[in-house]
């Protein structure tokens, strides 16, 4: 099938990952397909309003929002470190961990692995949907606290990331997880930077997996102490060696 004939299947999410990537590449250079897609979106955007009103079942709101906020709690605990001491202050007493749904699994396993490795080395690359496993993550007892948590966005990309600086005893850890990343080519990597004044400091390197997801955990012990970090950014670099940003900064946020 010619690429231009895949517009409908792209719109309906019927393409395989490879096909989708190929088509998205095609979209960059084909005005006609972009217009057709935009037109499809516009022409269909009233259709949901033809739905017959159906009364939702009793208690649905409580169940749905309950699950949403519960999910959030699990995610933030995992983001903070797979140790058992952390509680954020407003969330009250410990709750029994519940089995997690599939939807978060890539994120959980990826982050847990990333964090575990970060305690050994400093940088971990997540690829292949977070399937890597790390044997025997180091066990330590500590209470962690999120010092700051920010959302990184960029103007020329749909990618986004969240970053958190976590205080763990006397150390600080930077975690970052990104999604909807463009695929890299050759030796290219995504590089995380912490910025103070005009000075960028390397703060972890990662690549995107086939789903466009990547994560990093970085021990800030190797950075100069007592710096007031102003911003965090992600750039696309030609290789993992850049000491200052060589490529474009795609995502950033002030801290």
């Amino acid at each position: 099938m010619r690429e231009c004939e895949k517009v409908l299947d792209y719109f309906n999410n019927e393409l395989s990952n490879t096909e989708r990537e190929k088509f998205e590449k095609h979209l960059e250079s084909c005005d006609e397909c972009r217009e057709e897609l935009e037109e499809l979106r516009m022409l269909t955007d009233d259709l949901p309003f033809s739905s017959d009103p159906v009364e939702p079942p009793e208690g649905m709101k409580d169940r749905v929002l309950g699950a949403v906020f519960e999910e959030d709690k699990e995610v933030s605990e995992d983001q903070v470190v797979p140790l058992n001491e952390h509680r954020s202050k407003e969330e009250g007493p410990a709750h029994a961990p519940k089995p997690r749904g599939n939807r978060q699994r890539w994120m959980m396993s990826g982050l847990a692995a990333a964090l575990a490795v970060s305690l050994i080395g400093n940088v971990y690359i997540l690829s292949n949907g977070g399937e890597e496993s790390v044997s025997e993550p180091p066990i330590s007892e500590s209470t962690d606290e999120v010092n700051s948590r920010v959302l990184l966005q960029g103007e020329a990309t749909t990618a986004s990331a969240t970053a958190a600086i976590i205080r763990q005893n006397e150390s600080q850890l930077l975690t970052l997880q990104a999604e909807q990343l463009d695929q890299l080519e050759g030796d290219q990597v995504y590089q995380v930077w912490l910025l103070a004044g005009d000075q960028p400091y390397r703060a972890g390197t990662f690549v995107a997996n086939s789903n466009g997801e990547g994560a990093v955990a970085f021990s800030m012990d190797q950075l100069p102490a007592d710096i007031d970090w102003e911003a965090v950014a992600v750039s696309k670099e030609p290789d993992a060696e850049s000491q200052t940003p060589q490529g474009e900064v795609i995502l950033s946020s002030t801290l």
């Binding site: 159906v54 749905v64 699950a67």
Partner: peptide
Amino acid sequence: EKLLYSFVIKLSSDHSLAEEVLQ
């Protein structure tokens, strides 16, 4: 809530799925 719920019912005719989708 009601629009999305009704919309998913129209897509799937499945009430349990609709709640899961909203969640």
